[in-house]
Design a protein around this nucleic acid. Structure first.
Length: 339
DNA sequence: AGTGCAGGCCAC
DNA sequence: AAACGTGGCCTGCACT
């Protein structure tokens, strides 16, 4: 179509992913933006609108998922038939899907989610002073990070600096590379490498954590969560791309895995609490760092208070974190409002 | 008609 | 050699 040539995929065709189309669109090729729009709408229609209808149970009138308790390497749950852990939330069209999930008459949906649990656990596990201080003082973590790595006052952190710091914070949890960060932020690899160097200069404990974690994994073949659950890494230490994937998984697994241990402990404690109380509430869903309840209108505030407290204290008595866990909540007539 | 893979894209 | 972690579902296509 006389479009500029892009990269080939392994089948020999041109890549047409969203990042490629976005670039073409910016460069004035209108067809790319139309295709992006069509892809977005058809994704919502086929995967969510059409499919969820077919999953409505004709006895209960509800959609019921299946949770797989042993389907991930890190200890997370997974959800299927339908997957209710990837319901859209980000853009306005997607939010309309969430609005379709409504509470029964006389009740509301209550969503309680852990604020930045993975970065908090990284701060604890790697004993990162710069991160721990920010969390203890309740400062927005991405702004705080931007302030520290770009050497500006907290008040002078603008949206762009915060966005960059946020991308780095996420990248760190995943086992960052200059290549990945540059692609994500649409900057050069040199710039990305400078960001990463600055980051490690401000938070040297994180570099130490990454190095020792990968070394341990190479020696033992596994890493562990804060609750001593093992995660095996059969490809660690091998040559080639698989070895690289295993190293990044080794860095990520203790963080993601510990977070999943914690929310599972919270779910058990909340179940026991609800069973022993007279409160009218049901735990409907878990979405990795979030629990969604359906609660009687009169008991929302009580459930919110008690369940949040259980979630925040869920590591006890086995483990006392040196960073506070924080739970935020919202409620409403549908899932979009609740979140 | 069923199976499997690749590419793409939704969530945390 | 690939290039940021964990998943599941959809379409299109090749294959049996």
């Amino acid at each position: 179509m006389n479009l500029p040539n892009g990269k080939k995929n392994k089948s020999g065709g041109f890549q047409t992913g969203a990042d490629v189309l976005e670039d073409l669109s910016i460069r004035g090729f209108e067809i790319a933006s139309y295709l992006l729009e069509w892809r977005k709408i058809s994704k919502l229609k086929s995967t969510y609108s059409d499919s969820l209808m077919l999953h409505i149970n004709n006895v209960t009138g509800r959609v019921h998922t299946s949770f797989n308790l042993a389907g991930t390497s890190t200890g997370r749950l997974s959800s299927s038939d339908p997957n209710l852990q990837n319901i859209p939330i980000r853009d306005t069209e997607g939010k309309k899907i969430r609005e379709a999930f409504i509470a029964k008459e006389g009740a509301k949906l209550l969503s309680l989610d852990y604020n930045q649990i993975e970065l908090r656990l990284l701060a604890h596990i790697a004993d990162v002073k710069g991160l721990k201080n920010a969390f203890k003082n309740n400062i927005d973590i991405h702004s705080s990070t931007a302030s520290q790595i770009f050497k500006v006052n907290l008040n002078d952190v603008d949206a762009l600096l915060r966005r960059k710091a946020k991308a780095i914070n996420f990248g760190i949890i995943y086992g960052i590379s200059a290549f990945g960060l540059s692609k994500n932020l649409k900057i050069t690899r040199t710039e990305a490498q400078e960001f990463i160097d600055n980051y490690f200069k401000q938070f040297p404990e994180i570099r130490d954590y990454m190095n020792t974690t990968v070394e341990t994994a190479k020696t033992t073949g596994f890493v562990t969560t804060l609750f001593n659950r093992k995660i095996h890494l059969p490809n660690i230490g091998t040559k080639g791309p698989l070895g690289g994937f295993a190293e990044r998984a080794a860095i990520n697994a203790p963080i993601q895995g510990s977070a999943s241990d914690i929310i599972k402990r919270a779910m058990i404690k909340i179940h026991e609490f609800l069973k022993s109380s007279e409160l009218d509430a049901d735990l409907l869903l878990q979405v990795h760092d979030e629990l969604i309840f359906e609660t009687n209108n009169e008991t929302i505030d009580e459930i919110k208070k008690r369940a949040s407290e259980i979630m925040e204290q869920a590591t006890l008595p086995y483990l006392d974190l040196n960073v506070p866990l924080k739970v935020e909540g919202g409620h409403g007539i549908n899932w979009s409002v609740a979140h």
